[in-house]
Design a binder for these strands. Structure first.
Lengths: 374, 374
DNA sequence: TTGAAAGCGCTAACAT
DNA sequence: ATGTTAGCGCTTTCAA
């Protein structure tokens, strides 16, 4: 019953100190690499550490340092408690299979979490964050915040000191989380500028420049009847990519561009492409505001007998794994997601390290990756 | 400089006790829902908690309870320190784009982490784990362990008490992590049976049954010249899917099945399909041991003028998001990844909760999802 | 049912 | 350069 799993408990500082014949404080200094310790003693302490198999207890350390040495990586939506899933993010299952995406037993499945990771974008964010954090001995705690309850739990988690700060990736314009976090005085950095202005640091991409690259590439290629599938127009990324595209096209003598709004999902890209094709059967170029929609567009184009890129050139955005999985592989505007995610982590850690209280933003430049589709 | 971010620090039990006019112990009891507390006092304590905005300090609690109330979710490989990436997991970038997958500044990018999340499988595991954990107030700490250094850090992290146990998803047969963890006497549960036997709990799929479903479907559909693209044959999942497929085919009068080994990546699926097609131009059915390879196979088949499913029927495995992203959508063997991941979390939490010291396994049954490709 | 008190393992003044 | 000591905020006997 009261059986301790570890024989006699894990070794503590006290044990090491006794073994090395010094005080706890000295051991602590050695373990934490503080100077002012006699090299000879240092060595004997190290041996004692090795001999006892000592590992510092995180909780004890956190209690006194008041740092968790952990940060939260939060993927947040904008839903309220009435629904597990945001109203404007319908399920993606396009076909009629009965329950391929159904709710499993024991809450094993809900649409938000399921769909989040179906988008290759999030995996890249995670990779970037982990790769920056790991050499620094930190690991992200993964959280989702798509309901108001979940948001409260995130704030509470931070307030408990379970994590020192948060990296937030919002999927919706109306996301209240950034405000909640800053109101609570908690350190956080966002991926992408928030739709509602807030005093909070973020990293972002020069979306307009990216759209410009796409427009110029399509024009240089000889396309003359060009349309665009936009992202959701209530989020900055969606707006900016459209604005940048329109501006460039207008400047090059194309004042009117057919558009169809998508939601950054493959399915929405398909729907948008269907509509564009119906209204403008003669188009010869398409700029999709992300790769997933570009892939959907390619499928629809092929189903309608158009060859890509011979009949219709397609340019995507993001350079996600979907771009390479597609046939032909997608010409796309590269967003350096991993680097951006790493920078986000860097900003947060700098802020936690002290001095730097300022709110800043770091904007990355996109680049064009030319492959087969345009 | 020594400016405290929070005015006068966060409220403690002491503060609440004073506000409510009771002792710390009583507040603690109320907060932890222990019985034996006068309902009236209970109420006044609750009010005091609300009034002060009290949140229990995790570190302090952990220090005394000796539980972190956190678990690690580890994605592990089999590399050593000489390379960041396992030798048998070559980069996937198929085309010649110079640096689409290059190493970014500041360790923002390494192949292992980058490729892990390019596979939709891992996202589903994460979703399943998070959805089980969250209602229980826990969140996974995400770790990667693809080098021996990284593995040591994982073990060390657990030994420090930063997490109470680990959920391990191995990507390679030779992964030493499970052994390291059990040797250290740390609680862990695996996703999938380890290639090297170990005293450790795991969840898994009845791979052979899944392969049988695929075989029977292809036969029922009228296919007679059927080949298979296998997974890596040094991992149980790869072996079992092949064995199940072969057995069923043999039993149905097909003693010889052409096979090509893949590595569960789309690119390897393409290569394998090229080879099969070259050697058996007349085949009319293909079973790919996962969806990614099935997608690759579909691309190659189309490039060779074969229609799917009219000329060649294709069945995949997993029912990942790739199955729906493909045209035609993939008929595939569904692996209930989210449920399995949730079960993995459940097994670990049960084990941590006490009594249940036993090593167990839970095997899930696959099901066939019929879509357009076969 | 409630309170008093003893630590959990560690760090950081402070004293030496 | 090293040791002594006082907590960090919480849970949990043990008394009352």
């Amino acid at each position: 019953m009261t059986e301790d799993p570890r024989p006699a408990g894990a070794p503590t500082l006290e044990d090491v100190a006794r073994a090395a014949g010094v005080s706890r404080a000295t051991v602590s200094r050695v373990v934490n690499g503080v100077r002012n310790v006699d090299p000879v003693i240092q060595e004997s302490v190290r041996q004692a550490v090795a001999a006892t198999g000592y590992t510092p207890n995180r909780a004890a350390r956190s209690l006194v340092t008041r740092r968790a040495d952990a940060i939260a990586l939060v993927v947040s939506g904008a839903g309220d408690d009435s629904a597990e899933e945001p109203a404007d993010s319908p399920a993606e299952s396009a076909d009629g299979s009965p329950d391929a995406s159904a709710v499993g037993p024991d809450g094993a499945h809900n649409s938000f979490t399921a769909h989040v990771f179906a988008d290759p974008f999030f995996g890249r964010v995670v990779a970037g964050v982990v790769n920056y954090l790991r050499p620094r001995g930190m690991y992200p705690v993964l959280m989702f915040a798509e309901t108001s309850r979940a948001r409260d739990e995130v704030v509470s988690y931070l307030r408990q000191g379970s994590a020192d700060g948060a990296l937030v990736v919002s999927t919706h314009a109306e996301d209240p989380l950034p405000a909640l976090i800053t109101d609570a005085g908690l350190p956080a950095v966002l991926y992408a500028r928030p739709a509602r202005p807030a005093r909070i640091s973020y990293v972002d991409l020069a979306h307009q420049d990216g759209a410009r690259l796409a427009a110029e590439h399509l024009l240089a290629r000889g396309c003359r009847r060009i349309a665009t599938i936009t992202g959701p127009l209530d989020v900055p990324a969606g707006q900016d990519r459209l604005a940048g595209f329109r501006d460039t096209m207008a400047r090059r003598g194309h004042p009117y561009i057919p558009i169809a709004e998508g939601r950054f999902t493959q399915e929405s890209g398909e729907t948008a492409m269907e509509r564009l094709l119906a209204e403008h059967p003669d188009l010869d170029g398409v700029f999709a505001a992300n790769d997933l929609m570009a892939v959907g567009a390619c499928h629809v184009l092929r189903e309608h007998g158009r060859r890509v890129p011979e009949d219709v050139a397609v340019v995507g955005f993001d350079d996600s794994s979907a771009a390479l999985a597609c046939r032909p592989p997608l010409t796309t505007v590269r967003q350096p997601v991993e680097e951006m995610a790493a920078e986000m982590a860097r900003l947060l850690l700098d802020r936690l390290a002290g001095s730097d209280r300022a709110v800043t933003s770091v904007i990355f430049e996109p680049s064009l990756v030319v492959r087969g589709s345009a």
